[in-house]
């Protein structure tokens, strides 16, 4: 897709979006008519609809803006309110399979914390989280904050096997679990840890994940026993199960890509310096929105047919 001039670019995008909407609308009408007249609809047609409604917004870059809901702004406000020099722990408790959903929030949170001069301790409870951590280092930490120094402004502790066992130890003693960081620098030589002996000295812990061990284990083993402020960014599937912990046991929660998009939007709205930051989650909400509309249309069509058939059977 070579773009010749801005005018053409705008029109190409508009044409694309319009065409997509028309095709999807016509398709749904056809689907409704077909099933209404009692013919079976192959499930593969539904797959094509979903593929189309996801692919088109990616190609034509449809995006929306989102207002942060209280549970998201609570985390944002907490990060904003921490004084410079406070220490935040960000734990990467996810693997590449979950990454499309939660990597955007991990990046946004790292960017936000570093720009506010907070010190970050990175670690992961998922073995493959280490790779995702490297991704953040490559795209955010080293790229956007070249002046921040390893060991002084942030430290990467890497992966430690043991899940809850690790948490059970670091709630009272970091050094016991992490005698060195990921680059074998001894604990005592890492400046970030000068005033940090255990999780209880931290100002905020953010667990990003969606599996086990994850945020629930953090709350159970560190947040509650250590009285440490906790927040989380999680894959959408587990978000509803974590709501009961808000606001007493976790102070904020980013649920799925929507939570991440809301966080990105809030960062962009409130800080001039983030105007041009990459917003992968917001970009992802375009396909999300269209796909959700299509799914809702399916549900409505399905229910109309269900009630009609029920009435017919009764009649």
């Amino acid at each position: 897709m070579t773009v010749l001039n801005p005018l053409f670019a705008i029109s190409a995008q508009t044409i694309g979006i319009t065409l997509t909407l028309i095709i999807i609308g016509l398709g749904l009408a056809w689907l409704f008519w077909r099933s209404f007249s009692g013919k079976e609809v192959d499930r593969r047609i539904i797959f094509i609809f979903i593929f189309f409604s996801v692919a088109a917004p990616i190609l034509f870059k449809i995006s929306f803006t989102f207002k942060a809901i209280p549970i998201v702004s609570a985390l944002y406000d907490k990060v904003e309110s921490l004084p410079a020099g406070s220490t935040v722990l960000i734990s990467y408790d996810f693997d590449p399979a979950m990454a499309p959903e939660v990597q955007p929030m991990a990046d946004a949170l790292s960017r936000h914390c570093l720009s506010r001069d907070l010190k970050i301790i990175y670690m992961c409870l998922f073995p493959t989280g280490q790779g995702q951590l490297e991704e953040t280092f490559r795209t955010v930490v080293r790229e956007e904050f070249p002046n921040k120094k390893d060991g002084i402004d942030f430290v990467n502790l890497g992966y430690k096997a043991g899940g809850e066992g690790v948490l059970n130890v670091i709630v009272t003693d970091f050094e016991k679990m992490f005698p060195t960081d990921v680059n074998s620098v001894p604990y005592g030589d890492i400046q970030v840890f000068d005033n940090i002996k255990s999780c209880q000295n931290l100002d905020l812990i953010i667990s990003i994940g969606g599996g086990r061990p994850g945020i629930k284990e953090w709350v159970l083993f560190v947040g509650d026993p250590g009285n440490v402020p906790m927040a989380a960014g999680v894959a959408a599937v587990v978000a509803p199960q974590l709501y009961p912990y808000f606001p007493n046991q976790i102070l904020g929660l980013l649920g799925g890509v929507k939570g991440a998009a809301e966080y990105e939007n809030k960062m962009r709205d409130e800080h001039e310096q983030f105007k041009d930051m990459p917003t992968p989650a917001t970009t992802m909400m375009g396909p999300q929105t269209l796909a959700h509309i299509v799914v809702m249309a399916f549900i409505i069509i399905g229910n109309i047919l269900y009630f009609r058939n029920k009435r017919r059977e009764e009649g």
Partner: peptide, 14 residues
Amino acid sequence: YTVMGRISLLVGRI
């Protein structure tokens, strides 16, 4: 939420 999660993964792949 699950629908949203699954579509996110599809968006990631596409």
